[in-house]
Amino acid sequence: MDLIAEITPSLLDGLQTTLLLFFIIVIVTIPLGFLIACVRVYAPKWISWIIQVYIYVMRGTPLLLQLMVVFFGLPFAGITFERFPAAVFTFVINYAAYYAEIFRGGILSVPNGQFEAIKVLGIGRIRGFRKIIIPQVMRVVLPSVGNEVISLVKDTSLIYILGLGELLRAGQIAANSYASLIPYVAVGAIYLLVTGIITLLLNVVEKKTDY
């Protein structure tokens, strides 16, 4: 218990960095992914093709490699990021690609007849899309979006490669300092607690959209 009390402040500092990155990425990438999906579905073919290439690269290469390229590789091209902005930028372009594919599947799942009905009823394309199409898309994609959100909590541990003091790095330092597995157990418990809370929140949101 003395060890837990001693390492708790450093673990909480690491948790703060982890949660900060998590909330920034969630807030930015979900709407950005939806926007990218809409562009891919409705834009001219050449724009859709460019987006497909972007999504293929983001989904086809490891996030850890992308972090290394952005922080360690881009300076050779004259583009330099600080550690945390590099993490944010990399996570945004990576997760936006995943969300874009999820939302694209949701958009394509809506029957074409509903789009035609919006036009016939004179509701207006933008208003009809916002009031009729988007709620159906969100209901379809919510489980998949939730899975990605949970994955994001764990993927934040990858920023250790940039030397940022996130939760897992704090636990690793404590484990090495005290030659004990207890810090790793504590880190695992914190991750389980965070993902448990997020899962409960996602379940509440999913029930509210179950109509």
Rank of each mutant, 00 (worst) to 15 (best):
F115S: 13
P31W: 04
V39H: 03
S10F: 04
M138D: 06
S177E: 13
E148M: 05
F81T: 07
I7C: 05
S180Q: 09
S109G: 01
E6G: 09
A189M: 10
V204R: 15
A100I: 03
I126D: 04
T209C: 02
I126M: 13
M68N: 09
A175I: 00
T17E: 13
S109C: 04
K131L: 09
A87P: 08
L168C: 01
L162E: 15
I161C: 15
D155H: 15
C38Y: 06
R59V: 00
L193P: 05
L201F: 14
K119Q: 10
Y191Q: 12
I30C: 12
I107G: 03
I107P: 03
Y160L: 13
S180V: 03
G106V: 07
V204K: 12
T156D: 02
T90S: 05
P75R: 12
G163D: 13
L158Y: 15
Q172I: 02
L67R: 08
G78N: 04
A175M: 10
G196M: 07
N203K: 15
V204E: 05
A5Q: 09
P183A: 00
L164S: 11
R125K: 08
Q66E: 11
I198Q: 11
I190Q: 06
Y99E: 02
A87T: 03
I133K: 03
L162A: 15
F22N: 10
E6W: 09
K131S: 10
L108E: 11
Y56M: 03
F34Y: 11
I50A: 11
A170M: 07
L152R: 14
V153F: 09
F115E: 08
I134M: 14
A117E: 05
L20E: 06
S180E: 01
